[in-house]
Design a protein around this nucleic acid. Structure first.
Lengths: 192, 192
DNA sequence: CCTGTTTGCCTAAAAGCTTTAGGCAAATGC
DNA sequence: GCATTTGCCTAAAGCTTTTAGGCAAACAGG
């Protein structure tokens, strides 16, 4: 019985690719085994169970996304950084839809706290250094940006903006303009 | 063999409740059959398959949510309407997490076009009447609001903002203030 | 009524995914 | 070279999905 050389690492990477091809929901231990031309039970030495596999794919995607984001914002500031950062999320959704869906997976609190999700929040906060926000407004803004990137990507992927004018590309640009304007002029007190 | 009185309608409602209890992903034809104390195969007269069941739950949730939103914005305008509308989404996520997740389910284009999703977009646009936006900026703004509501709810439900100061409640208020300010002062041209 | 048709829920069965237990052989280390 | 570890296998049980075909309850018309 020749050994294929399974590894948790290799399984997770292959799982991420599988997710991009067939959708994160459709990632299955069985299908993964088929791809490695190995019996299903063999995977259970490397992965606890189906849930564990998916969680690992999610963590992998979060890391990858954080790496890309870190790369994009390096050497940039202000709106330039904001746009580069935002585009990483949108492009990831386009290029790696399965991984992007994985990155949106609900993780239990401890797992989430130990994930690259933390890096994402830190980078977002770093971008705000280009704007004059003090706490707690900076935190509010971090959460707003997270919501917009998250929400826009997912609505766009669901086809929410397709087949209707203006096209999604333009809206994206204008939304980033709007967010930039908002951050430069963050309201301190609500105007009633 | 006593008849229980299954109906597509009743199945969908029960499915929505099941989703709120165990999560939308965990909604299963088998579990639903168990709840009606009926054999699994019996459900297949009322529902095409598992996917069909989930789609119907999603459509039901979208309708319910649209009804609530319509109710909330009736007789309101401007920021008042914006806040009431936004709170409907957030409250729905809190009170009916399974249905809310269902409402975020990816639908194929035709189904989506025939869904209450259209009403949601129309209501969002109606709210913008309280602000001075002309096309295509109104569309951009509709998409931004959709993204924020969608994204915030889903991040909050995933526990993204819990256990860290300031609390989610305050952020939500400040984000709505910020969106209101942004809509009253929507940037026409980007500032480079 | 009561008889014929429709309809609702059933049994049966096949197929796929998940997960655990236990075994043999390949790799590794001394 | 031998012992131990490790990797993949077979086997098997349990659960979900889905289709096919059957019987009896509900219902309609005479």
């Amino acid at each position: 019985m020749a050994r294929v050389g399974l590894t948790t690492e290799r399984l997770v990477r292959a799982g991420a690719e599988l997710a991009d091809e067939v959708g994160f929901e459709q990632v299955t231990v069985s299908e993964l085994a088929r791809r490695f031309d190995v019996k299903v039970a063999s995977l259970y030495s490397h992965v606890k169970n189906s849930q564990d596999l998916k969680t690992r794919i999610a963590l992998f995607a979060l890391e990858e996304l954080a790496d890309r984001a870190a790369d994009a914002v390096a050497g940039r500031a202000g709106k330039d950084a904001l746009v580069a950062f935002a585009n990483v999320y949108r492009d990831y959704e386009r290029d790696r839809p399965g991984r992007a869906a994985a990155a949106r997976m609900r993780l239990d609190p401890e797992t989430a706290a130990a994930s690259a999700g933390v890096r994402h929040a830190q980078m977002t906060r770093a971008i705000l250094r280009g704007y004059d926000l003090t706490e707690p407004d900076a935190t509010h803004a971090v959460r707003l940006l997270g919501s917009v990137f998250h929400g826009y990507s997912s609505l766009e992927a669901a086809g929410g903006f397709s087949h209707s004018a203006p096209d999604s590309e333009e809206t994206w640009t204008r939304i980033l303009d709007a967010l930039d304007a908002l951050l430069r002029n963050w309201p301190t007190e609500p105007t009633p």
